[in-house]
């Protein structure tokens, strides 16, 4: 009886592994650099990527009539990528901040559907600045 149990349990475990493996199909999100994204670009509609970088100073542009519509330039190791985003941005989003974007690329623009600013728990700064703060 115990052998039969072992077989059944192993079968279930195997099934689970297969199930987890199948779950990756279509859910994987490669974390690429701007260079990798732009040089190896082939047209694969709907393929999503994740990118990190800094917001180029002064590149944030908001539509006058629709403040939700936003574009900016993402900088990473000297490479630049124009990003468009149409959602509320996180509190920490501003010129120069380090961000992670997820979305699709059409060969020219990156259409982000998710934007995260890095570094929320760690709240750093220079102790010198506190002299005049509250």
């Amino acid at each position: 009886m115990n052998k039969r149990f072992l077989v059944v349990i192993l079968a279930i475990a195997l099934l689970m592994i297969v199930w987890v493996g199948l779950g990756f199909e279509g859910n994987e999100l490669p974390y690429v650099t701007i260079r990798e994204l732009t040089t190896n670009y082939e047209k694969k509609p709907g393929k999503r990527f994740r990118l990190g970088g800094n917001v180029k100073e002064g590149s944030i542009f908001r539509n006058d009539n629709d403040p939700l519509a936003l574009s900016f330039v993402l900088m990473q190791e000297g490479n630049r990528l124009p990003v468009s985003y149409h959602k509320i941005v996180p509190d920490m989003f501003k010129d120069g901040s380090e961000v992670i974007v997820e979305g699709i690329y059409d060969g020219e623009y990156f259409f982000a559907d998710n934007l995260m600013t890095k570094c929320a728990s760690r709240y750093e700064g220079d102790l010198r600045d506190t002299k005049t703060s509250l």
């Binding site: 689970m16 592994i17 199930w19 987890v20 779950g23 990756f24 859910n27 994987e28 999100l29 490669p30 974390y31 690429v32 990798e36 994740r50 997820e102």
Partner: peptide
């Protein structure tokens, strides 16, 4: 637990194996 562990560590594992970090998000 195994599934969650696998998904959590996948970015690290995939980077070690293929050189590209592949994340899996909430949908996975």
């Amino acid at each position: 637990c195994f599934a969650v562990l696998w998904g959590t560590m996948f970015p690290v594992i995939s980077e070690a194996v293929t050189g590209t970090q592949i994340t899996v998000g909430a949908p996975f």
